[in-house]
Amino acid sequence: MTPRGLRLSQISLTHGNGQLALRAIDLQVNPGERLAIIGPSGAGKTTLLRLLATGLQPSSGQYELFGVAAWALSARQRQRLRARIGLIHQAPPLPPRQRVVTTVLAGKLGQWSLPKSLLSLLHPVDPAGAAAALERLDLADKLFARCDQLSGGQLQRVGIARVLYQAPELILADEPVSAMDPVLAGHTLSVLNQDAINRGATLLASLHAVDLALTHFPRIIGVREGRILFDRPASAVGQPELDALYANAQLQVSVPTAAAAAVTTPLNLRYPQC
């Protein structure tokens, strides 16, 4: 494994209430890989991403990130490690009264000096850079809007723009397009994937929409009851795998037809604000 990859070895995690959330997870992701994590609600997808972001410490097992054991580091060293990770939340924790430009520029707070970081919070130091990141998501016109003036889908795209501006080595996205319509969700995932490809960054995203996962990601991990049920190329995920993954779930999940999966969204289209 090269220094920028990640490896989980027999990782388990038990929450403070005694709930076993992850069970003996083994996972290796090489630099530049792009994979989607799918599975029913409560399967452990968000917990896995939080652990990968070093926001949760495993109860047992070892987590190696960028060539080091993440939890063998000091708190300060681990903070520097986190500056190399971009985390996209399903509901981004954005200050409601903060302007979008300030929110996007906050992506580099972990890389800037303290004086520059404080200055940017008072007066944006790189509005052109923030505008460029927003333009890729068709949000350039919201540069100086306040976050509480945006819809849920727009807030999700602002959170993604912040990570695009950050340009981290590892991108972890937790349901990043759940508040968007299908066309806009596909476009946004295309932008996120293209950014990872262009920079050689590693991208892991949890998605409820199986069709989006199979269309946009070459590798799929199926998680159920805190375990990895399967880990295989998207082209090898069929109806039997999905039936086993979503058994007893209150919905039917089908493999998209080849025609539907082949549909791509041009990146230069403009979309309704949602």
Score class of each variant (00 low, 15 high):
182 P>A: 03
99 R>S: 11
188 T>L: 01
6 L>R: 05
148 D>G: 02
230 F>W: 07
217 F>T: 10
262 A>C: 06
134 L>C: 08
64 E>P: 02
135 E>F: 05
190 S>P: 06
110 G>A: 13
261 A>Q: 12
272 P>Q: 13
187 H>I: 01
60 S>K: 09
265 T>C: 14
191 V>W: 03
44 G>P: 02
237 V>I: 08
90 Q>H: 12
110 G>F: 07
121 L>F: 08
129 G>L: 15
249 A>Y: 09
177 V>R: 01
251 L>H: 15
34 R>L: 10
100 V>C: 13
163 V>G: 05
7 R>V: 02
196 A>E: 04
152 G>F: 01
214 L>P: 10
266 P>E: 06
187 H>N: 07
167 A>D: 09
68 V>K: 12
90 Q>K: 09
76 R>F: 08
1 M>I: 13
135 E>H: 09
62 Q>P: 02
137 L>M: 10
190 S>E: 15
267 L>K: 11
209 A>K: 04
274 C>W: 15
30 N>V: 13
268 N>I: 10
262 A>E: 14
130 A>G: 00
232 R>L: 12
97 R>A: 15
236 A>K: 02
27 L>D: 08
251 L>W: 12
109 L>R: 08
229 L>Q: 15
131 A>W: 11
85 I>F: 08
37 I>P: 06
45 K>M: 10
226 G>S: 05
131 A>Q: 15
14 T>K: 10
155 L>W: 12
162 R>D: 03
189 L>A: 05
69 A>E: 12
204 L>A: 06
84 R>Q: 14
218 P>N: 03
234 A>L: 01
218 P>C: 06
96 P>E: 02
226 G>Q: 06
263 V>N: 06
96 P>V: 00
107 G>T: 07
144 F>S: 06
42 G>T: 10
259 A>S: 04
124 P>L: 00
216 H>M: 03
44 G>W: 12
6 L>T: 06
177 V>N: 04
243 D>H: 14
108 K>M: 13
100 V>D: 06
172 L>P: 00
133 A>I: 02
